[in-house]
């Protein structure tokens, strides 16, 4: 496979292969950004992969007071899933357990789309008949009395069927420390891209996977081709000087958002250069047979 080089970082001429997903989003506000973030982080905890978490979720962007419906600081949170029912279930459970419970929180719709997702209209029963329905400016809200005041929650949000999950970059570095520096740089750059999230811890995944495994029932198992301690095996794709690989996984509201994220990630990693960060960048795919979205790295160079 031919290699492209940008600022000394070798970029493999390959592509990331991603899948269509369903996504919804909410804005969580609170009296302070700290508590808006806290609610969001709690809500999106244990939401790294649909394989075992039901959904993939994370904070998309932080929103200043002027950009939230109630004039308080907030964050936009996105949730991705393969099925509408699962997405609804995850949204309801997570907002109910993690946002409703969080001090001073409120929750609003933050997604366009044809399909409705229940939000406050599913949670209102918690208020035991004391819930208040309000329609303001064509939007419907529920207000639920709680111990520090009220939980204000929009009745519904929307779901998009145009979302994409599984955009990725693999960063290949000389040492673990350099790999982490490169990955952190990529995460920071991608966080600024609206409409995309990185659901893994801090946006980074070290346990990149392949489909299936030798044990029955395993849907995915370790990505042996990129594990340095398995470099002696025939399937290894690592050069001798690579001792650590980290992956950034990206879910986007749209395919464009995934592409923009990958572009921003590559730019940040190449800007860092091979001496401080990654020597190479590649991406994961399944030969183009499984996912309908293909992001060719050569199209995403800075």
């Amino acid at each position: 496979m031919s290699k492209l080089t940008v600022r000394g970082v070798e970029i493999e001429d390959t592509f990331a292969e991603a899948f269509g997903m369903k996504a919804t989003a909410v804005i969580i506000t609170a009296p302070t950004l700290k508590w808006a973030r806290q609610a969001a982080i709690t809500m999106t905890g244990f939401a790294t992969s649909v394989i075992a978490c039901g959904c993939e979720a994370a904070i998309d962007v932080e929103l200043p007071e002027a950009q939230t419906p109630d004039g308080r600081p907030g964050v936009r949170v996105m949730l991705f899933s393969m099925s509408t029912d699962e997405l609804q279930k995850q949204l309801q459970t997570r907002v109910g357990q993690c946002v409703l419970t969080s001090p001073g929180s409120a929750c609003f719709a933050a997604m366009e789309g044809a399909d409705e997702m229940k939000l406050g209209s599913a949670l209102r029963y918690f208020a035991d008949g004391f819930q208040i329905s309000k329609k303001i400016g064509g939007r419907h809200f529920w207000r639920m009395p709680v111990m520090d005041g009220e939980f204000l929650c929009e009745a519904t949000t929307r779901m998009t069927r145009a979302a994409v999950g599984g955009g990725n970059l693999l960063l290949l570095a000389e040492t673990s420390a350099k790999a982490l520096v490169a990955a952190e740089a990529a995460v920071a750059a991608i966080e600024a891209v609206p409409g995309a999230i990185m659901p893994f811890p801090g946006g980074i995944v070290r346990s990149g996977s392949k489909v299936g495994g030798k044990y029955k029932g395993m849907m995915a198992s370790t990505n042996d081709a990129y594990a340095p301690t398995l470099r002696h095996l025939p399937q290894s794709k690592l050069r001798p000087d690579i001792n650590a690989v980290l992956e950034i996984v990206i879910d986007g509201e749209t395919s464009d958002a995934v592409a923009a994220s990958m572009r921003a990630g590559i730019a940040a990693v190449t800007k860092l250069g091979p001496a401080r960060g990654a020597k190479g960048i590649t991406a994961g795919n399944y030969g183009g047979k499984l996912g309908k979205f293909h992001y060719h790295l050569r199209d995403l160079l800075p």
Binding site: T29, P31, P69, D70, G71, R72, G104, A106, K134, I136, G137, F141, R143, D148, G149, E150, L152
Partner: peptide
């Protein structure tokens, strides 16, 4: 007079609609 989010929501909408000059 507990702190609530609804008042902010209503204020914002009334200002945006030109019904109020300020919250």
């Amino acid at each position: 007079a507990p702190e609530i989010a609804f008042s902010g929501l209503l204020d914002r909408w009334l200002v945006d609609e030109g019904i109020l000059d300020k919250p």
